[in-house]
Design a protein around this nucleic acid. Structure first.
Lengths: 193, 193, 193, 193
DNA sequence: GATGAATGAGCCTTCATTCAT
DNA sequence: TATGAATGAAGGCTCATTCAT
């Protein structure tokens, strides 16, 4: 006991980190099946931990959702500059990047919906996602606008919201192809002739 | 006869109808603020009636939602052929009609969301809304496609879903203009050059 | 209107009586199917009247139940002396009479149960039934006891309660024959050898 | 290991078990006063717990009822063979055992009634009670019949139902002595001379 | 008198969140 | 720290009973 106060920290950390990982995996799975508002207990059960443990690691549901998707958001953000560098035109980069964003959202049952919830508890979530991605999108949009490939009167924030919205409910309606509709929207960005 | 009031069998209806009206108004208001899944009690309270009264008039939530929006759905449906007749081109008619649909949805917090719920209890709702509007939209879309004004590979159902989705959350985000984004989507329907 | 205050009374009476008859018939039918605690509205619906009409005629449920079975209780009561006069022995009269009582109860879904409810609202019901039948039973029991055919230490009230209890639930359990069990009980009344 | 507490995995159970006991006691008391269909809240209140706690321990009402009476049912079942071994005659054993069963039922307001409910939700309850006791009774009955002490044409199930019925309402009617009436019924089992 | 609309208490059940162990 | 038991607010729904028409 007394021996621990100093050197145990890394050990605990290892323990806790493993637990946190299990939680994130479990949450991700449950989210896919039952949406990001799935009962806390379901997540705890699947992770094999108590509900209290979830609250310890993620005080609010927003914290959990943020954590679950952090890596993917990060990867998406990082893809922006890369695509800009490797694509033929800024517009192509924008289109590809949007497509990637759609990939991300479409498999996250309920994520798109909660992303646009006005529930106060989700402010942190909105911030986390949009703050990270909007600037990336803005840079792509600006580049395309600068190249005259798209109209220049649209904010990145608005575009991302729109893409997010178009992805809502896409996973459980075979007659609705979110990717395709987002494609139409992006096509609509072209300057009118 | 005995009462001497003649053939006024739908008498009590005066009362009930007034009450039903109050209920529909209250529900519409509550729906705007808290979505179409707002607690029955809240609606009852705002209408100044007991909860039982809601169940008497609208046995299921779907019944209530349908009733709340029936008139607007009907008006929207009827506007389709009219616009087709009065517009310069089928595309203009389509664009106008979509705009009208947006008008309808934008103030209905949560309506778009429930419209795409897969909950079995909402079947009647889907039928009532989509069955009525999709054919109207299809006719406009077909006309525009026949005139070569839009691509011909999109179903009306999918388009309406997309428009519906783009309207989600529009009312409480000043940085997001659903009408405008729908405009971009409709612009994207143009055949590629 | 003015013309009515006097001579209409008999007319109303005819009307009301017809209505009351419809109510009693409807209640009897519903009671058979759903027990004597069936929803008031079900009875009103089957009778083709409003719920208010039931309350006008029968302020409490006990009043309704009493009225529904009044004739049969009366007939049962009157059968007592008749059986005593026509049977070979007082015991035979008692056995027959009890059997008749069982006939009455067994087809009244839930009646036996409510007869022994301790709900304060059923006091009038208990009084109505037991006050009328217990003396009849007592006379038969006394006669049999006087003839030395049964033990003399049992009250009629207690016997009737027992018979009533044995009839509870008889109608919906094919493995339980209330009549037969009552027969065993009555056999048990015989003085021990 | 890490916590150094050794193999105390069933630790929290101390707490929960105490609580469960309180629940069972409370339920038993409430059942006596208001029947086994008493509101969940009443039971929770008397136990001094939240309603959720009841649902945690006993997901269905049948589970709760079964648990409340499990020990007594078991004890009653085990008394059968013992009485058969220790009594002078099988009939005496049967009579004693029935008496014991009456002891059990007489204070359980509503139990007898629910035991004979045909509600699907009570299947587990029926199984738990009747499946356990009917065979015990059958053995006693058979032994007595084999000894020529009682008639042999009655099923144990029917007898137990009858005894159960005779016990209904016994606790709150000073003029009705269930034990005595059951005695008469059992006396009626004797073969007719 | 009759009607049935309205009321609202009352019950069940779920689940986020806290907290003793 | 981790656990999961306990809590209790919420919300859905039913029905006895009242009362305006």
């Amino acid at each position: 006991m007394g021996a621990g106060m100093g050197g145990q920290s890394p050990r605990r950390r290892a323990d806790a980190r493993r637990n946190e990982k299990a939680l994130l995996d479990a949450a991700a799975e449950v989210f896919v099946g039952a949406g990001v508002n799935a009962p806390v207990r379901d997540i705890a059960t699947r992770a094999g931990v108590g509900t209290g443990t979830i609250y310890r690691h993620f005080p609010t549901r927003a914290d959990l959702i943020i954590a679950v998707y952090r890596h993917q958001v990060e990867a998406c953000a990082e893809a922006g500059p890369a695509l800009l560098a490797s694509s033929d035109t800024p517009y192509a980069a924008l289109a590809h990047w949007i497509d990637r964003f759609v990939d991300f959202l479409v498999t996250k049952h309920g994520l798109a919906a909660v992303l646009r919830s006005d529930d106060a508890g989700f402010d942190a979530l909105h911030a986390s996602f949009l703050d990270r991605l909007v600037p990336v999108c803005a840079r792509l949009l600006d580049a395309a606008a600068a190249a005259g490939e798209v109209r220049s009167d649209l904010e990145a924030y608005e575009l991302m919201r729109a893409v997010g919205n178009l992805c809502i409910g896409a996973e459980d309606d075979p007659r609705y192809d979110a990717r395709r509709l987002v494609g139409l929207l992006v096509a609509g960005l072209r300057p009118s002739p």
